[in-house]
């Protein structure tokens, strides 16, 4: 009896694993951007990089649109996209940019912002990359744009370029 139970257990275990694998195969691209769009972001609370304050999802409801940008000083493509963020912040009033500093050191991040400009209305820190997971981030740079209802309307994987920039402008018109 005990032996049969063991066999049953092992077989179900193996079948479970294999069926998950089969399902995973059918899912095209785990990290495709489209299945995030339309989802609402969950409530969060992120600590500030600069001081001991926090930002939460409630504050974002006051913005028409928010772009959440995940960046780090050690990430070369982040430097490339940074000028678009600066321009976006300078030229548009209806979008605010929230920066999430990903797996970085405070001093390096502050130097980064000193050197390249600070387009962020708030810079949050995520030193071990745990909080970013909630936003479906797996590498940086990545950005998501949310509307007033905190619904994700666009996700950009990789550095923002001229084309993305123009699309953002269209979206927030």
């Amino acid at each position: 009896m005990k032996n049969n139970f063991k066999k049953f257990f092992i077989f179900s275990f193996v079948i479970f694993f294999l069926s998950i694998f089969t399902l995973a195969l059918k899912k095209d691209n785990n990290y495709s951007t489209k299945n995030l769009i339309g989802n609402q972001i969950s409530s969060f609370q992120l600590p500030s990089l600069r001081n001991s304050s926090f930002i939460t999802d409630k504050e974002l409801k006051q913005n028409q649109f928010t772009l959440i940008n995940f960046f780090a000083s050690w990430c070369a493509p982040c430097r490339i996209e940074h000028k678009y963020l600066v321009r976006l912040n300078d030229q548009n009033k209806n979008i605010k940019i929230l920066g999430v500093n990903f797996k970085d050191k405070k001093n390096n991040a502050l130097n980064f912002l000193n050197d390249l400009g600070d387009p962020y209305s708030f810079v949050a820190k995520d030193p071990d990359g745990k909080a970013s997971i909630l936003f479906g981030i797996y590498g940086i740079p990545e950005s998501i744009i949310i509307n007033k209802e905190l619904e994700i309307i666009k996700k950009i994987v990789g550095p923002i370029d001229q084309k993305d920039y123009e699309e953002i402008l269209r979206l927030i018109k």
């Binding site: 998950i20 399902l23 995973a24 785990n30 071990d128 997971i133």
Partner: peptide, 15 residues
């Protein structure tokens, strides 16, 4: 992978 298949939620397990 499991979480993604079963609940559609995406996580990454890191260092």
């Amino acid at each position: 992978i499991f979480l993604d298949v079963l609940t559609n939620e995406k996580v990454s397990v890191g260092p």
